[in-house]
Amino acid sequence: MRRRAAAALAVPFSAVMLAVSSCGSIPEDWKTPAFLQSGEEEVDERLPTVTGPVGEEPEVSFPDIAPPSEQISGVVHQGEGEGELVRSDDLLLADIVDYQWTAEGEAEKTQSTYDTGAPVLLQLSQMNEEMSADLVDQPLNSRVVYVFPPQDPAQAQQMGQPSPEPGSTVSIVDIQGRYGKGQTVPGEQTGNGGGDLPTVEDAGHAMPEITIPEDTDPPEDLETVPLVEGEGPEVEESQQLVVQYTGVTWSDGEVFDSTWVAGKDGTPFTFIAGAGQVIEGWDTGLVGHEVGSRVMLVIPEEMAYGEDAAASGAPSGTLVFVVDILGAVDSQPAPEEPASPPAEPEEE
């Protein structure tokens, strides 16, 4: 799915400077979970003490030492079970809480997804190994703490950034879920379209086969056909969706884009529904379907790339997509605009 415009998703957390990319191609059901060490490893005693269940805002106490001048991290709580271990090419669903550690035993909370009710999506393949090492091979419901030393003021100035706050930044990452490479919706495909609409053959952990009906004109309006009935919550506008997809042109049935092609290899795609990041047919056609659904979208030209699509290198005419809705996550609220200072009274 080609985005209409490049719209960066601002994630306001020190530990999250990531973007979506892809690597690897082993289907989810064929992977063998990595070995999980029993028990919890000893953690650096300079880390803050973090208590409370994963899934709730943690309680944090800071040791009576100066904030560390080097980056340290550790797993402070390990989830139970080996069924769903984090893998190095996963897209993680995580809650993150940030603190600014300013002096011995003193810190101030600066950000929290628990406050906004909107966890974030982290693409592990975009994290450096030093940051991802504590996350990979951990089960869901694990908690990792990172301490980042302050940035050098001269370096910040050189990069055009504001002067860093004094002290170290602390990020607490709670692993809430994962989306794996090659993952598809779990339900059985009970419909395949047909009639005057395309037919779709389920290919498991591979690109679905989409067949356009012969000697048939495309529909004039947007058509949405459920192929797998999901059992999750309904997709809402402004949510971040996690999907697999394949798109073909009605005119010749040729695939022009898919998360299953070489180079993507089943890497889930993310976007914000209803925000104009994708074509109108997606923004309109996916909202209201349940998470876990597979949906066929038959999108007329005016809700796809328009009459001038070919001139910009985009596929033209009516398009057909098969989309697996793997997840829907509430988006971070937009930052509040600073209040304008009151106008000074005019002199008489």
Rank of each mutant, 00 (worst) to 15 (best):
M1A: 13
R4E: 13
L9E: 14
V16Q: 12
G24E: 04
I26K: 10
I26G: 00
I26A: 10
E28N: 10
P33M: 09
S38A: 13
G39F: 07
E40Q: 15
V43C: 07
D44G: 05
V50W: 00
G55E: 01
E57F: 04
V60R: 00
S61I: 05
P63E: 01
P67V: 02
P68Q: 01
V76C: 00
G81A: 01
E82M: 07
Y99E: 02
G105A: 06
T110C: 05
P119Q: 09
S125C: 15
E129W: 06
Q138E: 15
Q138W: 12
V145N: 06
P150D: 09
M159D: 15
G167S: 11
R178E: 11
Q183Y: 00
V185C: 10
P186H: 05
G187R: 04
L197P: 04
V200T: 06
D202F: 14
G204M: 09
G204N: 07
A206P: 00
P219K: 10
E229Q: 14
G230T: 06
G230Y: 04
E231W: 00
E231V: 10
P233H: 08
E234Y: 04
E236P: 02
Q240N: 12
Q244C: 01
G247W: 08
G253M: 06
E254W: 03
F256S: 02
P268S: 07
F269H: 09
I272N: 09
G281Q: 10
W282C: 04
L286R: 01
V291W: 05
E301Y: 06
Y305L: 04
E307W: 02
E307P: 03
E307M: 11
A314E: 13
S316F: 05
D324V: 03
A328C: 07
E337Q: 13
P341V: 07
P342S: 10
E344L: 14
